[in-house]
Design a protein around this nucleic acid. Structure first.
Lengths: 345, 345
DNA sequence: TTGTAAGCGTTATCAG
DNA sequence: CTGATAACGCTTACAA
């Protein structure tokens, strides 16, 4: 342990610096803050003394006096999961560029814990709050709070709140258009858990995009299930039985796609020559290491986090905003949709 | 946005509460803090007034005066990666149980950024610091700081610092013993990236455990490579060529194991009947969805984070400790090592 | 039991 | 240019 428990050398204060430099605290303060109403030579002396003493201004005191804490609270519901992390990174990134620090709390999907943490953060006088949900579905509003709030990933039910979400409809459309452009025509849709709005939205986006091309999902409708590999395998078994000539499978998650790839291979279908496959989330470890490498949709969650933080800072500066804003996804094309053909029809 | 930019209703202070309750600030303070030198009826009045005004004590002020901020700094180097997250969760968990909050910074493996963040955190008067490394190898010490520091995951080079790490040697031994106990004898070891101390340590643990059983790694030595699936596939190809009768493969990561499983299946080997396979990290999404489900080692990173925080709090309370402490891993047995046999030798 | 007053470390105001 | 002095919101002797 690096601290001196014994000596307990009181951290130097501005008063110490002032004394060492032979000036008043007021002057020392000005000198250190570049207040330009101090002679250059004096400033030098103060700065030097400060360095000598390894002086670190007590931000608490400064902020007590300024009324702002220079911190924001980040309440996440899913530290464990991989969706909140990029969002959190983006926010941290945006914050780190300024002089704000981030107080992190994990509420674990528990409303009571969330309320507790929010109160604790308000007690610490955070200048604002970002609430990162665990899944992309509407959540209850925290109501009126004395500081601005931005909801990220999971939007607030109250349209007067500001929420940043990812655009699942567009995501669905993106893959469908990609496949159509590559000449695929018999496109099956293996969606995730139907209880997720995101699952339904992606299907909606895909279905509409297919309709614009005069198509519909192979088999007439999307198959909903769960988000995991096992469902990908089951679904593809079914599809191959019913529609042996399917030439593309849109999957609701990279894991589903992974299961789909395995099952297709086991049935002797070549990807992408016979069947193209797309995933969703662009989860590095899956997409980069599957065979073939998987085309996927990246929800740009880091950008989402950055925007949430930017909106929050704007609100703190007195420029609030409201409503739900969507961050556009981007398609990352890889081998699983290459080797396309143009059918003769 | 939920804040009232227009009205800007000053947050109520203790003085407001006192006024509303018709007492002095001092009395209000005592009443709210359970100082028992105040008449019950008075306390009621104060508490009521506080609720009425939705009063939240300004923790900044309280702490200015107490000299402690009630916050700890958590500097991570790998927010993106999945190893620092559980550690961070554990620390957050341990902290959340008390009344300390966590200031999170991501230094992204950059020493300069780390230094910058540490200084910023010291300025905020954190009571202590936890530095979470990106990979389990020795890292430079931050040196003497005015507050206690605990290094997590990546230990400090300075033995006078306090570091919490996972025990990779034991992890290696754990799987080897598990396989030996299940009757496996021709056990290959496919390790990760040799530049990682953890990769070498796991091999060392496994090799020693095998030696205790009178065995050595099949082929005479472990194969080092990288941490990904592709390496798992390559390595198993090699092994099957050289040692067709191999009956177990210890893999340095779950991803390697995943690649191994695929290649074994493609070569007609049944897992676990013909060949047992073990992974490392117990990465839920891999182990739970592979076929068969994968036996793996869990490094108990969350426990590591909790311990780091506990050590830090102890140090803050004046009970420092030093040296490197290891958290024991645990084996999670699944299907990939079931169906064992006892060979006739 | 309650109130008065002195800080905690800074910054801002306003005289010198 | 520099230096008293008064906040900032709260806790805590010490007095009443």
């Amino acid at each position: 342990m690096t601290a001196d428990a014994e000596l307990a050398p009181r951290r130097p204060t501005l008063a110490d610096v002032a004394r060492a430099a032979g000036v008043s605290v007021a002057t020392a303060s000005k000198a250190l803050n570049g207040r330009r109403q101090v002679r250059e030579e004096t400033r030098q002396r103060v700065v030097h003394a400060a360095e000598e003493l390894a002086f670190r201004p007590n931000v608490l005191a400064r902020q007590l006096q300024k009324g702002r804490s220079g911190t924001i609270g980040l309440v996440t519901h899913d530290l464990e999961g991989r969706f909140s992390i990029p969002t959190l990174m983006g926010a941290e990134d945006e914050a780190g560029n300024g002089e704000v620090s981030v107080l992190l709390c994990d509420a674990r999907g528990d409303t009571l814990r969330e309320r507790y943490h929010v109160q604790a953060l308000l007690g610490r006088r955070v200048d604002g709050l970002i609430i990162v949900g665990a899944r992309p579905d509407v959540r209850p509003s925290l109501g009126r709070l004395p500081v601005p709030v931005v909801y990220a990933y999971a939007p607030s039910e109250d349209p007067d709140d500001m929420s940043q979400v990812c655009d699942s409809v567009e995501a669905g459309a993106l893959v469908a258009e990609h496949l159509v452009a590559r000449g695929r025509r018999r496109i099956a849709v293996v969606a995730g858990d139907e209880s997720y709005g995101a699952a339904r939205d992606r299907v909606e986006g895909a279905t509409r995009a297919l309709a614009r091309a005069g198509l519909e999902p192979a088999g007439g409708r999307a198959l909903f299930g769960s988000w995991d590999e096992a469902w990908g395998r089951t679904a593809v078994e079914t599809i191959l039985g019913l529609l042996p000539d399917v030439d593309a499978v849109i999957c609701g998650s990279d894991q589903i796609a992974r299961g789909a790839l395995d099952t297709l291979r086991e049935h002797g279908r070549r990807v992408p020559e016979d069947v193209a496959v797309t995933g969703h989330d662009n989860w590095e470890v899956i997409v980069a290491h599957s065979r073939p490498r998987l085309t996927s949709v990246d929800m740009n969650l880091e950008e989402l986090g950055r925007r949430a933080a930017a909106r929050l800072f704007a609100a703190i500066e007195g420029h609030p905003s409201r409503g739900i804003e969507s961050v556009s996804p981007r398609l990352v094309a890889r081998d699983s949709t290459r080797g396309f053909y143009t059918p003769a029809d």
